[in-house]
């Protein structure tokens, strides 16, 4: 029997965590608790997706960010001793999880990509060395904690008519209110093209020599019916493409039928965002590029030679 807590930040990530949670709990029995914001919006849905209990976090004063819940969650976890706590590997999740783990003096598997029971223990896999290797860890302390890479686990099939207990946690005790205040919030621009819905995604990487060469990638993408995305350096350092097209950790995660990385080396920060693709393909001139270790099909060759040939082949 295991008690599993899920911290709910976004709808998508919560569904995926519930998918993983149910898989884990079904093996050993136990219950799933979802911790969510005070408005409890969508909690009926969480019941259908497998939550046995909903915990509403106390309302936060204006200007406080979600991270302000850390002391409350930590206090509750210290008292109730859940066996497992899962958070999404979103930016917030990746800040909150280690801080919670530190307060609970426990181990945390960051950005986990696979989970399994082994004997009575949970083992998790994570990607290390920029995508070149997989590290498998087991936990020597409780609770077991992990942040889970987006699009790694599928949402469970909802069961109508399930219900979940509801309770609330007490507000922040005096002296535990953090000093961090939000003074401004800007929504990122939404683009007409939505990478997350695309069936085919072509990602441009550092292998591109100049901005103008994106035209080549665009032409190729249009022929395979795909949208163009990119790795972080292209959007955040070179500013060749808008931030919204940046794929990976702290960018968007995609789950298309086909992902093609063009001049993408395959760093973990990027590949985490495409792990869910049905087929991963790559074009890269370096045979040892980590992307080939994570791809189904790959052309080993210069993209400036390969793309024109691909374009010709596709036009036929």
């Amino acid at each position: 029997m295991a008690v599993l807590w899920i911290f709910s930040e976004t709808t998508t990530s919560t569904k995926e965590l519930l998918g993983l949670g149910r898989e884990l709990i079904s093996a050993v029995g136990g219950s799933i608790t979802v911790l969510m914001g005070p408005d409890g919006e969508g909690r009926e849905e969480w019941a259908a997706y497998g939550a046995d209990e909903i915990i509403l976090l106390p309302p936060l004063a204006d200007g406080l960010a979600m991270e302000a819940h850390i002391p409350v969650i930590a206090a509750a976890a210290a008292e109730e001793k859940p066996d497992i706590i899962l958070l999404p590997a979103t930016a917030r999740g990746r800040e909150m999880a280690p801080r919670l783990a530190q307060r609970l003096d426990t181990g945390l598997c960051s950005n986990c990509v696979a989970v399994r029971w082994s004997g009575g223990d949970i083992e998790m896999d994570r990607v290390v060395y920029g995508g070149a290797a997989i590290q498998t860890v087991k936990f020597l302390t409780r609770p077991v904690m992990a942040t889970v890479a987006p699009k790694t686990f599928s949402p469970p099939v909802p069961e109508e008519g399930r219900s979940a207990r509801l309770r609330e946690l007490p507000p922040l005790a005096a002296g535990t209110v953090p000093g961090v205040r939000i003074v401004e919030k800007r929504e990122k621009r939404r683009l007409a093209r939505d990478l997350t819905q695309a069936k085919v995604v072509v990602a441009a990487g550092r292998g591109l020599e100049k901005k103008e060469d994106l035209a080549l990638v665009e032409e190729f993408a249009s022929l395979v019916g795909g949208e163009v995305g990119c790795t972080r350096p292209l959007s955040e350092e070179l500013h060749w493409l808008p931030t919204e097209l940046c794929i990976g950790l702290s960018g968007v995660s995609v789950k298309p039928d086909l992902y093609i990385g063009v001049g993408v080396s395959g760093q973990v920060q990027h590949m985490t965002g495409v792990r869910g693709a049905k087929v991963i393909a790559a074009v890269n001139r370096d045979e040892n590029a980590p992307i080939f270790a994570q791809a189904d099909l790959g052309i080993v060759g210069d993209l400036y030679e390969a793309l024109p040939k691909l374009i010709t082949a596709l036009k036929k």
Partner: peptide, 13 residues
């Protein structure tokens, strides 16, 4: 080294 690993002839680099 780079070229020799990329260039395929007679079915192998």
């Amino acid at each position: 080294v780079r070229y020799a690993k990329e260039r395929v002839q007679f079915g192998q680099p």
